[in-house]
């Protein structure tokens, strides 16, 4: 056999045989799959089309958001200009205060950055306590409120009267946005009181124990910036059933 293969002509034939065999096999396999995968190719084309549509819609969304921010800013500047020029400084001050209390303005000052995250490498079948649930976020907010927090945001979403936290699959919905871990809560207030309240909480201490390994990290900061509620120009649906008794 060794002698046979050693001959160049025979070696060529064997190689050609193998090549032709794999060629034949590939052609057959391709012909078979062309028939079977016609539907799959249609599906793939439809998915590609939808991906392209989604990309365009998301681009449009980003443009609209920028436009919204600019219009909001312009509106505020014009209101300020007008009220000052017309001598309505008191109305301007009231408006500003009301907007601050409603959560419609960015606020900043000392506070903490609290990060809640799933156990690293969490997989289905692991302890459910190892992942962050909506109840954990609510629990954290309750603790921070008790420690004197004045304002919150979660992953950049300002918490206001219309905010609600709800688990949807592996994500948590807040202000119509789906948030995924890590959840970063910014809390405005005394950094020492706020971080101590988290560090001394029994529930979070239990959830950080080996085996559960939930991540709970409170970081003190001299200055945090909590964004304004992004939909302050779209609150009608949250107040349309409220008849004012006394202004």
């Amino acid at each position: 056999m060794g002698q046979v293969l050693a001959r160049p002509k025979n070696r060529q034939r064997v190689l050609l045989f193998i090549l032709m065999l794999s060629f034949g096999w590939t052609v057959m396999s391709h012909i078979t799959s062309v028939g079977v995968s016609q539907d799959r190719r249609d599906l793939a084309d439809r998915i590609r089309q939808r991906q392209e549509d989604l990309r365009l819609y998301e681009e449009q969304h980003a443009i609209l958001l920028r436009e919204n921010e600019q219009l909001q800013q312009k509106k505020e500047e014009l209101i300020q200009e007008l009220l000052i020029s017309e001598g309505h400084e008191e109305l301007l001050a009231t408006l500003e205060r009301v907007r601050v209390l409603a959560g419609f303005t960015e606020v900043s000052g000392p506070g903490i950055i609290l990060t809640l995250d799933d156990k690293p490498g969490f997989k289905i079948g692991d302890n459910e306590d190892s992942i962050v649930h909506d109840t954990d976020l609510k629990h954290a907010l309750d603790i921070l409120l008790g420690a004197g927090a004045a304002a919150f945001s979660i992953n950049g979403n300002r918490l206001v009267n219309a905010s609600d936290l709800k688990c949807i699959g592996l994500t948590i919905r807040c202000n119509q946005q789906r948030l995924s871990p890590p959840y970063v809560i910014l809390a405005l207030g005394d950094p020492i009181r706020l971080s101590e309240a988290i560090e001394h909480d029994q529930t979070f201490n239990f959830r950080q124990m080996p085996g559960i390994d939930l991540i709970v990290r409170a970081q003190k900061s001299d200055r945090i910036v909590i964004p304004a509620y992004a939909e302050s120009d779209n609150i009608e649906r949250f107040i349309d059933m409220l008849e004012v008794v006394s202004p």
């Binding site: 408006l95 009301v98 209390l101 009267n161 219309a162 107040i239 202004p247």
Partner: peptide, 9 residues
């Protein structure tokens, strides 16, 4: 606008 914000707050 101020009234809407006050109701919301």
């Amino acid at each position: 606008e101020k009234e809407r914000a006050a109701i919301f707050a």
